[in-house]
Amino acid sequence: MNWEWVTGHLPLIGQLLGEHVFLSVLPVVIGLAVSLPLGIVCSRYPALYGPVLLLTSVLYAVPSLALFVFLLGVTGLHTTTVVIPLALYTLSVLVRNVVDGMRSVPDAVRDAAVGMGFGPLRRLVQVELPIAVPLIMAGTRVATVSNISMVSIGALLGFGGLGQLFTTYGIQLNFFLTAILTGVVLTVALAVAADTIIVGIQRLLTPWAPRGAGR
């Protein structure tokens, strides 16, 4: 481990870390924004859920590198080349969790809400979505962590945040161990930090959940 290299390249490492955060968080935000309405619609109209699930499963099976490369032909070399595939992966994880979350609302609770005079929109916003939060957040955790891991693959195209430490500073510097290790350790640390933050947000949003729920 060459600590001098690390201390000498702190600004670079910081910049790559920032890029990594941006490239992995933006897709989560986009994925959430799309999968929430999509999941809600799918839970209301189960006939729609089958096809959507099939489509997202297929999407998930496409290798990320392939998607990156495929988009390269469409968008050119650009951050969207990395963001769009990751947003699609996030979507395919989250739709399932949103639907499961909506289905986790007990029938008795839904029945009581209707019986007390909740209209459909109010019931969705005040009753169903809050109860679905633990499962939606569980999906968000999985998606965020896997995004952080996958961003590195973008490095093969030149947009990989910390992944650059494997390619530009690893392979091209004749498998320079310090840069590679720094990249691996920081990526895992970033994922653990992001996961902890999401769990914290979930605790804040769901003070009502019995401990141990929503892993």
């Binding site: 007990p106 008795a108 009581a112 809400a113 019986g115 009753v127 109860i131 009502w208």
Partner: peptide, 29 residues
């Protein structure tokens, strides 16, 4: 919906809102 707010409704599994405190459950209607 307006009609239902004028009729108390109690069911077997209670159907309490798990995300609201007991007090806010009672304050719902």
């Amino acid at each position: 919906s307006v009609l239902r707010r004028d009729m108390g409704y109690v069911i077997q599994q209670a159907g309490l809102f798990p995300h609201r405190t007991v007090l806010d459950n009672v304050a719902t209607v």
